[in-house]
Amino acid sequence: SSMAAAQTLPPYFTKGSIIQLANGDLKKVEDLKTEDFIQSADISNDLKIDSSTVERIESTHSPGIAVVQFSVGEHRAQVSVEVLIEYPFFVFGQGWSSCSPERTSQLFDLPCCKLSVGDVCISLTLKNLK
């Protein structure tokens, strides 16, 4: 059911959730901009932004679950992630995007775009990762 799916996603994607940026500023989740993530990563001691380009989106035999294949970072490492179709990724210059923006809006009231092949999502890696 949709309730079960909603409960498996963390609460901070719900519209109105308060998010603290690295400089201490508070913003609502729906108001976050690309710059907020970039500036927060800039002053973070241990995190840095990595770009993850969507290469493929596939449905699975499990309803409500998709596999998103990303090309990550300058080394273009291939990473496949199994996600709920309502899971929102943050796309550079666009904002929250999911495989099913209708479901994301329905469950979280979060304004959301359709995640598409070629979208560049914000992801994080650890600084000084050897």
């Binding site: 963390p10 990724f89 992801s123």
Partner: peptide
């Protein structure tokens, strides 16, 4: 009277998936 309510505040990095694949040597 307005009762003070605690409001959850989430750190910005919670919202970004960590994707840290093994880097080539």
């Amino acid at each position: 009277n307005v009762e003070p309510r605690s409001v959850a505040v989430f750190p910005w990095h919670s919202l970004v998936p960590f994707l840290a694949p093994s880097q080539p040597d």
